[in-house]
Each structure stands twice: as C-alpha cells, then as structure tokens.
Amino acid sequence: GAPLGYLHVLWQRGEPAGKIPARRLRRAARLHRRLGPTGKEAHALKRLREAANSNDLDTVQQLLEDGTDPCAADDKGRTALHFASCNGNDHIVQLLLDHGADPNQRDGLGNTPLHLAACTNHVPVITTLLRGGARVDALDRAGRTPLHLAKSKLNILQEGFSHSLEAVRLEVKQIIQMLREYLDRLGRHEQKEQLDDLCSRLQMTSTKEQVDEVTDLLASFTSLSLQMQKMDNR
C-alpha cells in the first residue's frame, strides 16, 4: 500500500484532522522529514511549492488535505509559505498556517516568510503571518518593523498619485489592521485603542478629504510610535 504520511500518525489517535494544533503538526512533520520523503512524497512536496508559487489555491488545499508537509523546503530552503508570502496570496498563506506551516522558518538566505511579504509590501499577508505566530521583532535583517513599512506606505498615499477613494480607504484599513496586530503582540494596548478609534473614523468617511485626514492622523501616529520604539531600544 501507499506509505503513511506523518498526518496518519496523528489521525490514529482519534483526533479529527481539523482539530490538530498547528504546533503538533509542525513537530510531527519534523520527525517525518528526518526519515526522508519517498519518491511519490517528494513529487507532492514539489507540487505544493509550485502550486503556492502559481497561486493555485485548489491544488494547495488538496495536497495539504492529502497530508503533504507544508514545511518541506527546496534546495534553497524555500517552503510553500515563502512562495505564497512573496506573492501576497493571503488565502494560501492562511491555509498553509492552518495546516502547520512554520511562519518563522528561514530559507537559505535567512529570510522568513515575513521578510518576503515585507519586501513586496503585502500588508494583509504580514497581518496574517503575525496572527499565525511570526516573530514581531523585525520584518527583515535591516531591522525594519511593521511601523517602518506603514510609514513608507502612508508616505506614498499622502502623495496622492491617482488613487481612487475606495483604493485609499482599503489601503489605510489594511495598514491599521497590520499595526493593530503588531501592537497587540507587543502588549501596547493603549496605542491599539488609538488605532481602533482611527478605524472607526475611517468607516465613517465619505469624501477624499475625510480619508486624507485619517491618513494624516495615522501617519502622525506611526511617526510617534517609531520614536517610542527608538527610545525603547536604547
């Protein structure tokens, strides 16, 4: 018969697959990887990375349900989560995390999925990775945090280059969600409440001037938070 994947060991314990904690999935996957994949498994692992890289959600889902290890890397250390994060595919990122992908796994160059999402400015993916347990100390090896990325994005929005009202509102909302997740992980609840207030104000906007006002307030908030971060690091 077909060789048992690492998930079968967990399922034999009488626990539904959907209820298995991500931490246990990752631990079981590491044990399985030490034994090395069979030819059929190696093909499935490669297909998973390729599907994540080509934004093929259905294939990713099918392979994960079949027990394919989401943490398996190619010869450059890249996992399916690295590819999905770089591409900005939030749905595939969430699916991989739900099936035990490690948000802090590094590729051959030392990049985590969070680094790649930050380099390509995929704010919703950063939010999802933070929720999934990605370390919040830095987005990249240069020491940038979500605050730095938010400031860069807001500077572009403040320039006002041909963005529709809805597009600006959506981007500001995504930046707020990212910062809320980041500050929540840091335990900065007072600042998180300020962001909640800005989010409420954003929802009530109906003109570009009103959205611009919220954008300016968020930019000021971000600059102040960066100053606080520098002081904390001294």
Rank of each mutant, 00 (worst) to 15 (best):
Leu7Asn: 01
Leu7Ile: 12
His8Asn: 04
Leu10Phe: 02
Trp11Phe: 03
Pro16Leu: 07
Ile20Asp: 01
Arg23Ala: 13
Arg24Phe: 05
Leu25Gln: 07
Arg26Leu: 09
Arg26Asn: 08
Arg27Pro: 01
Arg27Ile: 08
Arg30Thr: 07
His32Asn: 10
Arg34Cys: 07
Leu35Ser: 13
Pro37Gln: 12
Lys40Tyr: 11
Ala42Met: 09
Leu48His: 13
Ala52Asn: 04
Asn53Thr: 06
Asn53Gln: 15
Leu57Ala: 06
Glu65Thr: 11
Asp69Arg: 03
Ala72Gln: 10
Gly77Thr: 03
Arg78Val: 10
Arg78Glu: 14
Asn89Met: 11
Asp90Pro: 00
His91Ser: 14
Ile92Ser: 04
Leu96Pro: 09
Leu97Ala: 13
Asp98Cys: 11
Gly100Arg: 08
Pro103Arg: 13
Gln105Phe: 01
Arg106Ser: 15
Gly108Trp: 08
His115Val: 12
His115Pro: 10
Ala117Asn: 09
Asn121Ser: 12
Pro124Gln: 10
Ile126Cys: 10
Thr128His: 05
Leu129Glu: 05
Arg131Glu: 12
Arg131Val: 02
Gly133Ile: 08
Ala134Phe: 00
Ala134Arg: 05
Arg135Leu: 05
Asp137Leu: 02
Ala138Val: 01
Ala138Leu: 01
Asp140Asn: 15
Asp140Arg: 03
Ala142Ser: 12
Leu147Phe: 09
His148Arg: 13
Lys153Glu: 04
Asn155Asp: 13
Leu157Arg: 05
Glu159Trp: 04
Leu165Cys: 08
Leu170Val: 11
Glu171Cys: 02
Val172Leu: 01
Gln174Asp: 01
Gln177Ile: 00
Gln177Lys: 14
Met178Pro: 00
Glu181Val: 03
Tyr182Gln: 04
Leu186Ala: 07
Gly187Phe: 01
Gly187Cys: 05
Gln191Ser: 15
Gln191Thr: 11
Leu195Cys: 11
Leu195Ala: 05
Asp196Trp: 04
Asp197Gln: 09
Leu198Ser: 05
Ser200His: 09
Leu202His: 02
Leu202Ile: 01
Met204Pro: 02
Ser206Phe: 06
Thr207Leu: 02
Val211Phe: 00
Ser220Ala: 05
Thr222Gln: 03
Asn233Val: 07
Asn233Met: 07
Arg234Lys: 10
